[in-house]
């Protein structure tokens, strides 16, 4: 009974292909507005979740301020399209690059901190970002009205399809592809070394500061891309979308997903987006449920919920075959 062992590269390729197929199928078969929107939201936030998985799961840096970068991405897109008249695609590029630059600039000083200090510092930054979003009305429109009436995405004029879904799906595939490449490269290994011990990482010749800053900037870039797509999706939004709760939900996606593989981010994003709609009275108990899940997962499933379940299923399957 031979185990069919694919090289990790082949597995990645297969995974990406499968994801592409799934996305295509979803696009073609799910027609109801409500469900399409859920799927789209899951795709959009999965992008940010992948970034956070790399930052938190792989490199071990706790960031509670990702909402800031999503906000920057969203407002960048809104402003570029409305005030500068930029085409959505280059605007999206700005959504991705601007947070990356800000993230890199912030990261150098901030990543000298670790553990609780880093968490609190990023929380403070995230909270500040929300305040800026609500107060800096000239750029963000504040809480009321915010950014209003962005045009529906029409990259290919005349095509009567949901182009945003395709765009978001392509972005997700690109992000996954890049991240998979990263994980199985010297950079990915360096992140895991840093997570274990910065001293040991440095002792292996890894430039710890630079690597941490780079991954922080990357996570910021992905969050910004999510923000830009979110802006295209919502077309009207205000600061309330970018409160600390967003950072918490992104954190939940990673914890519910996996701390050791980026595929977990997809599962996590889907679950967190769907959860409110699966449980009645969820809104009221949302924080408690999040807190409870986080506490339990950290205590009993330190690899992330989906990861642990997947490993369990794996063991079950292998057990079956052995019979």
């Amino acid at each position: 009974m031979a185990r069919f062992m694919l090289t990790s590269q082949a597995r990645d390729a297969v995974g990406l292909l499968a994801l592409a197929v799934v996305l295509l199928v979803v696009d073609l078969t799910i027609t109801g507005h409500f469900h399409r929107n859920l799927a789209l939201q899951a795709i959009i936030f999965a992008i940010a979740a992948v970034g956070l998985t790399l930052l938190l799961g792989f490199a071990g840096q706790v960031s509670l301020g990702q909402n800031a970068f999503v906000a920057i991405g969203a407002y960048a897109l809104g402003n570029m399209v409305q005030k500068v008249g930029l085409h959505p695609l280059p605007a999206l590029a700005v959504s991705t690059l601007l947070p990356a630059i800000v993230g890199y600039a912030v990261s150098r000083p901030i990543l000298r901190l670790s553990g609780h200090y880093l968490a609190l510092a990023t929380l403070a930054l995230g909270a500040s970002a929300y305040i800026f979003a609500s107060q800096w009305t000239s750029v963000t429109g504040g809480l009321d009205p915010g950014i209003v009436d962005l045009p529906k995405l029409a990259l290919v004029p005349g095509l009567e399809r949901d182009q945003l879904f395709t765009l978001a799906a392509l972005c997700l595939l690109a992000v996954m592809g890049f991240s998979l490449l990263l994980v199985h490269s010297p950079v990915g290994r360096a992140l895991q070394a840093i997570c274990t011990s910065e001293t040991v990482a440095a002792g292996a010749g890894i430039r710890v500061d630079r690597t941490k800053a780079a991954i922080f900037a990357l996570a910021a870039a992905f969050a910004g891309l999510s923000g830009g797509l979110y802006a295209l999706f919502m077309r009207s939004f205000n600061a309330t979308s970018f409160s600390i709760l967003l950072s918490i939900e992104l954190l939940m996606m990673v914890i519910v997903g996996s701390l050791s593989t980026i595929w977990g981010a997809l599962v996590g994003a889907l679950l967190v987006v769907l959860l409110p709609h699966m449980l009645e009275h969820f809104e009221a108990a949302k924080l408690f449920i999040y807190g409870a899940i986080m506490t339990l997962v950290v205590m009993f499933m330190p690899n992330g919920l989906a990861s642990t379940l997947f490993a369990g299923v794996n063991r079950l399957l292998r057990g079956d075959r052995a019979r």
Partner: peptide, 15 residues
């Protein structure tokens, strides 16, 4: 790990 402890305390706070 330290970052697990951090997340645990975040979870408790949320609860």
């Amino acid at each position: 790990d330290l970052h697990m402890l951090v997340m645990l305390t975040i979870g408790i706070t949320l609860m």
